[in-house]
Design a protein around this nucleic acid. Sequence first.
DNA 1: AAGTGGTCTAGACCACCTA
DNA 2: AGGTGGTCTAGACCACTTT
Lengths: 256, 256
Amino acid sequence: MKKRDPVSNHIEADFVDRDSYEPAYVQLAKLLKRKIGAGLFLPGEMLPSESELRSFYKVSQMTVRQAINILAGDGVVRSLQGKGTFVKPMNLGAFSFQLGELQKLFIDKKHASIKFLEVDLVIPAERIAKILSIPPGERAVYIRRLILKDNEPVLIHSEYLIYDPTRPLVESEMEVTSLEGLFDGSGQTDLKKGEISINAAVFNDDEAGLLKVPPQSPAFKMVHVFYDFNDKVVSWGQFLCRGDQSHFSTKVGIWE
Amino acid sequence: MKKRDPVSNHIEADFVDRDSYEPAYVQLAKLLKRKIGAGLFLPGEMLPSESELRSFYKVSQMTVRQAINILAGDGVVRSLQGKGTFVKPMNLGAFSFQLGELQKLFIDKKHASIKFLEVDLVIPAERIAKILSIPPGERAVYIRRLILKDNEPVLIHSEYLIYDPTRPLVESEMEVTSLEGLFDGSGQTDLKKGEISINAAVFNDDEAGLLKVPPQSPAFKMVHVFYDFNDKVVSWGQFLCRGDQSHFSTKVGIWE
DNA sequence: AAGTGGTCTAGACCACCTA
DNA sequence: AGGTGGTCTAGACCACTTT
């Protein structure tokens, strides 16, 4: 039996097209991914070394590394210095969900609308004052609103904002809480960072009424804190989403 | 007023230490990120051009690009060919959650244990047979088990597996469903890819009883499908997690 | 010593945008 | 035309692992 070439294996177009609009490193990454997907390199096995790849595909070291970095970023492969680059077994820990999926759901401009339920200057509970780092008894802006999709309510957003008397309320409110901007990154030039956590929850009677779902039906609760460039908290609040209308999904392993 | 140097701005150690154990591109990336975090480059503004950075920090083009690619990967910055590299406003769409967080919760080897509730050869419902791509009436392996943490039940996993008569049941069962391996990537060499979706749910009476929580309490439901290297479905099932014991959290924007 | 991944350079060329 | 990001190279050197 003929000795198997460790690099080349039957696969369509096993070369880098220098006239392609696609960069060489992208082509190479796709090529290798396709080979891995086809089972030519099984999980745990080592890929051809970078120098093998370099000479086989007639590209430079840097180009090979760029390609392999893509695969590593995809979680398909792992490189160990001095040892080699190995195909990673699929693992669930690598699953990651993008909150952006929700964006499609309720921030669609064509179908979405917002109904304010409450906009007030309030003295927040001690717990919340603590989170906002304001003295107890000091006022904050409280906003509660309903996001509708095709006139069907899907989501309640309630939020406490730092009250800045030097700025008109409407402005600070719009800036910090313009949801479209928050999600697509078009605005929000004064927020530096944020934390968010997703929890499972059920609607209470009040919330269920607003969203027109039965009480005790499932919901996602997303609690958020936003900071400005002085690392001061500017906002704390939560999104309550209908569980039946929102979910997160993703793929892992070798696709395509 | 003195003209502001567009590249250098007061910041500790604004240079690349060539004797450091840290690669130059990592140092540069951290440096720039720190400057952005300090508000020296505001969202929407343009970073110094690559050639400016190159000459200021005395590094090569490739090194600058590697640094910028890190920032771009972090979602901190966006490069537009022919225009420049710009600081991105924080946006929620960039939030991403790692399923790995759950791993800590229930796959901890020290504290976790598994109790099998059911292991059977069953004829699955038509809907499930369809997902598994097996003819109606054909048998599949059904597994249902409880994952406990410190002897407290936190999670129910139920799963249908393709029944392969050529393999002993126990083996195929252990291979596909060894949860530890699934999550940390130590095993699972025969799974190519998977899809998973996370939904909000509430426990029914049966499930609530198993997990010792009140009925109708909140839960995460994670439905999964796994494929082998022939793109055949090998498993369909779901994790049901106590909502009070599991949540996902993440950070976005400029941290550290 | 030989093989592996990892970093870095100096310079080249290209594609794109703005004037 | 001149600036910007984007790709690529050939070769150098380093750090780590295995033999």
